[in-house]
Design a protein around this nucleic acid. Structure first.
Lengths: 106, 106
DNA sequence: TTTTTATATTGCAATATTACGATATAGAGT
DNA sequence: ACTCTATATCGTAATATTGCAATATAAAAA
């Protein structure tokens, strides 16, 4: 198979999984960290920043964009990527509602 | 290929990606939520709780255990799974250090 | 000791992800 | 128009993930 049965889970569970998946690669973590650090929209400095080929980075950027974590604006012949604040905030608070009261064993 | 080049990234970036990957499936999100809800170690109630076959759930539990998010204690012929508090807390705070000061564009 | 219950492992098919060379596209500069 | 720069897409190979039937294991119950 290899096909996740999304219809068997709640919308919330699928959303958490989807956002986590977008972050589940060190290159994408690096891209997010870089965009946060430079605090501005960065075009293809990312290609020079990361030790991966340009098509690979373009692919990772696409996945982050699909997840809504970043957004990109066309700026001349370059593209200006930056963090999409609302979604990033949502990620930061993703596990806050989950509270472990107390473990009865282990 | 299909092989993530972990050696090209920092230990921290790889750890974030690894933890995110463990959460990047709705069934595993559901397992975590269930373990938090019942607030106790639950054995194979999870198999009855989730609409997936027993081997599939066993596999997901293994991945969560490998990531350190849950732990399991043998209790008779059953196994008692529960949230591994320190790692779960780490996940909750994973993105807190990342701060978006201000977007200069977009 | 046989059976039942709980869980793990194996093996396999379907699908997804990762990475990148080659190539396409499109605006900017000349 | 031509070239350069920035980015996306295509195609493809290698590998990983998902899901489950079949089977193994091991303690509990009968």
């Amino acid at each position: 198979m290899g096909l996740t049965k999304t219809d068997l889970f709640t919308e919330n569970q699928n959303e958490i999984a989807m956002l986590a998946k977008a972050i589940a690669h060190p290159a994408r973590v690096a891209i997010i960290e870089y965009l946060l650090k430079v605090n501005a929209c960065i075009c293809n400095d990312i290609v020079n920043e990361l030790p991966l080929a340009q098509p690979t980075i373009s692919q990772h950027l696409k996945e982050l964009k699909n997840a809504g974590i970043i957004k990109g604006n066309i700026e001349g012949n370059a593209i200006c990527y930056c963090i999409n604040e609302p979604v990033f905030s949502k990620i930061q608070g993703l596990f806050q509602p989950m509270q472990l009261i107390q473990n009865k064993c282990c």
